[in-house]
């Protein structure tokens, strides 16, 4: 298993290098940061000086190499727009995004699995049909539209929940959390539903179809023939067997939740890294963009690695090196 993990970490590093390379090569097309940084009254000399100062006159590969060198030491440069180290800015913004993503993820997983199991077990019931039809909305409506609809209903018409921002935050050990205040929790509700709804319906539909497949298996028939209670058959025997493909998708979706937070954060003006990234694009703030993309890819790769390791715990057949029975 150790050898497997080492191999996967190696592959992950390679993926990160390639992601960085692709991301970096695209920055050449988003515009010239110098335009934004210097005011109207600039001279050709100012431009040339700043360009040299930022290293933008160097070739693409030199720039990329320097970025990697610095990044390995945890230094992602200084934001062009805010003039502060990117690392500080990201750390300051990360709690907002991580809290939002965590709440959305938990909602999506809990409700996704519960509803998936429900619709599989009672697949001919009225409720199961209703839930399946409703889930089509979740899959087909774009995130920003759901966000705007929720704002319209719960903030504008009913006035129950705030339409933007994080509410009051409390700083605990350098981490700004919204979990500890009432307004912070209230502010979390709409954005996390918006962000998690698509993932929830996806997980639900996947759990349902996997579960229906598993319920047809011989070992489920045999479990029933042994007179096990429905609860044991459905949860102990069937649900566990649906988990391997479901965990793969959940893993990928968790990465997607953090990445797609960009849209939700924009709709709700949520002060997280997604909103930071959108603002950075408008200003061609290359250090922020580069750091954000690396952060997201590190998360994706990390989650994938965690998922691969989880397989070992769920499916004994993959732990082939433990015992030899053949």
């Amino acid at each position: 298993m150790l050898a497997f993990i080492i191999r996967r970490v190696g592959q992950s590093l390679l993926v990160l290098l390639i992601v960085g390379l692709v991301a970096f090569s695209m920055f050449n097309f988003v515009g010239d940061p110098i335009d934004n940084m210097l005011g109207q009254e600039r001279t050709a000399e100012d431009i040339a000086r700043l360009r040299e100062q930022l290293g933008l006159d160097r070739s693409f590969f030199v720039q990329y190499f320097r970025f990697l060198q610095e990044a390995l030491q945890g230094n992602f440069g200084v934001s062009y727009r805010q003039g502060r180290p990117v690392t500080d800015i990201l750390l300051e913004r990360a709690p907002a995004t991580l809290e939002l993503a965590a709440v959305s993820g938990v909602l999506a997983i809990l409700f996704g699995i519960a509803l998936g199991v429900f619709t599989a077990i009672r697949r001919d019931g009225i409720w199961a049909h209703a839930i399946m039809s409703a889930s089509l909305i979740g899959v087909s409506l774009p995130t920003f539209l759901i966000g705007i609809l929720l704002i319209y209903v719960f903030s504008v018409e009913l006035g129950w929940l705030p339409s933007f921002g994080r509410g009051d935050v409390v700083t605990v050990g350098g981490w700004k959390t919204g979990f500890l205040t009432e307004s912070g929790l209230k502010a979390l509700i709409l954005p996390s539903i918006t962000l998690g709804l698509y993932q929830m319906t996806l997980i639900m539909r996947l759990v349902r179809s996997e579960m229906l497949e598993v319920l047809r298996q011989d070992y489920i028939r045999f479990a029933r023939a042994r007179g096990l209670r429905d609860r044991a058959v459905n949860f102990r025997h069937a649900l566990k067997n649906t988990m391997v493909p479901v965990i793969t998708v959940i893993g990928l979706q968790l990465g997607a939740i953090i990445a797609f937070a960009i849209i939700t954060e924009t709709v709700f003006q949520w002060p997280g890294v997604g909103l930071l990234f959108i603002n950075a694009i408008q200003f061609v703030d290359i250090p922020v963009m580069a750091a954000y993309l690396m952060l997201i890819s590190v998360m994706f790769v990390g989650i994938n690695l965690a998922v691969d390791i989880l397989y070992f715990f769920i499916d004994p057949r993959l732990r082939a090196d433990r015992t030899g029975g053949h």
């Binding site: 298996q217 011989d218 070992y219 028939r221 045999f222 479990a223 029933r224 023939a225 042994r226 007179g227 096990l228 209670r229 429905d230 102990r236 025997h237 566990k240 067997n241 769920i314 499916d315 004994p316 057949r317």
Partner: peptide, 24 residues
Amino acid sequence: MRRLRGKEIGMVFQDPLTSLNPLL
């Protein structure tokens, strides 16, 4: 009926490769 299954009536299936839950 469930109470009878396993307790009063046992059943052996055709394919032993698929009739045991692989994860337990």
